[in-house]
Design a protein around this nucleic acid. Structure first.
Lengths: 224, 224
DNA sequence: TAACTTAGTGTCGCATTCACACTATGTCAA
DNA sequence: TTGACATAGTGTGAATGCGACACTAAGTTA
């Protein structure tokens, strides 16, 4: 790149965007992975990603990867960290901007096993991954757990209508510990971010549960 | 960059590292800026920074900028965010990895006004800055304020020996509000991260203050 | 209609946080 | 030498928040 008179030239590198997409399944927190067919790391599972185009911000690149490679729109996504160890890609210098995104679990099922070559993997039983993607996932998971405690980010994992028991089990499977039902309900209702609907949900031979919805979808509030 | 058969070529960009270096002065929280003499933004104040070299990780690049351009070593620094709007640098495509760093205030004075062309600017009265550096500083400041509440990061702003009143006024000038002296002392001592020395500090015609030191310098603990 | 399953609800004790004012110890000037 | 001054240093009590805890409600099915 030309930087003006007297300036040393700046080395040029490729910028990748790698997406850590989480959802919650019956087997707990899961991340969407894509099996690679090309070298390097052919046959390995890797994060969905792509190279940043000209005239594209990192955030726009992340949205494009979600739309083009995964076929989803409107997910919550935020920048995570930028990974730039010089040896992280055997093809040459690639700096990767990691993002993490959350997918409501009702939208997750149609994706896996399709022509995309993608599948949901439980974060606790990951096969060896290509590149430094295990590191990226580890950091994304830390961030998610941290943000559960001080934000309303977990609501981004819920469908439009959900029961409080479902919400509680989302929290429990991410944190990896059981929560008290009454205290959880008091806490989550006191946040003022969800509201009861007049619908109920029947799921077995027992009392139906009230369905709730998020008051301001897409908003993630910082709490406490 | 060559990505293998059948792959589209990845656009190449320059990677910059920009450092938001904070300290605390008599006039409150301050950031180190450098006056630019070259186009673009000649005459404007900007963050110290540089281009990432080949075979250099972002973290190593940040340390190199601190050492070569500012002449300091061993500062606390962490990655902040990556800024990549396509139009953020009029020279062409430059993606900047922002870092924020903290300098103990006893080491800050020798830097300003020197041949470096750098100066400390109060964060509340910033002149118009070059590039998107005002945005970067704003985000760094948010992060610093947030981390005050849940980590021991403020200790990275202190000299080796300091009084509790000095530490309190560091917290106060970053948070922008007064704290209760007794409650602050109880809280900070209960963290177990600092210890009293047997030295005292005389600073005027009044009772001298006990000097404290950090137990494990360089360690930033997450609290609560 | 009785057994089963999950939904839904309130209280009390403990710990944490916050508000608050006076004594201690040095310097300096009269 | 002593009195005025300035900052250092210290404890208690009230209010609030948080965690532990068990039973009733309402539907399904045999």
């Amino acid at each position: 790149m030309h930087l003006g008179p007297g300036a040393e030239p700046a080395p040029l590198v490729a910028i990748a965007v790698d997406m850590v997409i989480f959802t919650v399944t019956e087997r707990g927190l899961a991340v969407l992975l894509r099996r690679r067919h090309e070298a390097p790391f052919a046959g390995y599972w890797t994060l969905p990603g792509g190279f940043l185009s000209d005239h594209e911000s990192p955030e726009a690149g992340a949205e494009r990867v979600l739309a083009d490679k995964i076929g989803v729109h409107g997910l919550y996504a935020e920048q995570l960290y930028t990974f730039g160890r010089p040896d992280r890609d055997p093809r040459g210098r690639v700096v990767s901007i990691g993002f993490f995104a959350l997918m409501p679990w009702n939208r997750a099922a149609p994706l896996a096993g399709e022509a995309h070559g993608t599948a949901w993997h439980s974060v606790d039983t990951l096969a060896p991954l290509g590149f430094d993607h295990a590191t990226i996932i580890g950091m994304a998971r830390q961030r998610l757990v941290a943000k559960l405690a001080y934000s309303t980010i977990a609501l981004q994992l819920m469908p439009q209508r959900f029961t409080l028991s479902q919400l509680q089990s989302v929290y429990e499977s991410i944190m990896g510990e059981a929560l008290d039902k009454r205290n959880f309900r008091k806490w989550v209702c006191s946040l003022g971010c969800i509201e009861a609907t007049d619908e109920t949900y029947r799921a077995g031979s027992h009392r139906p549960a009230r369905l709730y919805r998020v008051k301001h979808p897409g908003e993630v509030r910082i709490i406490k």
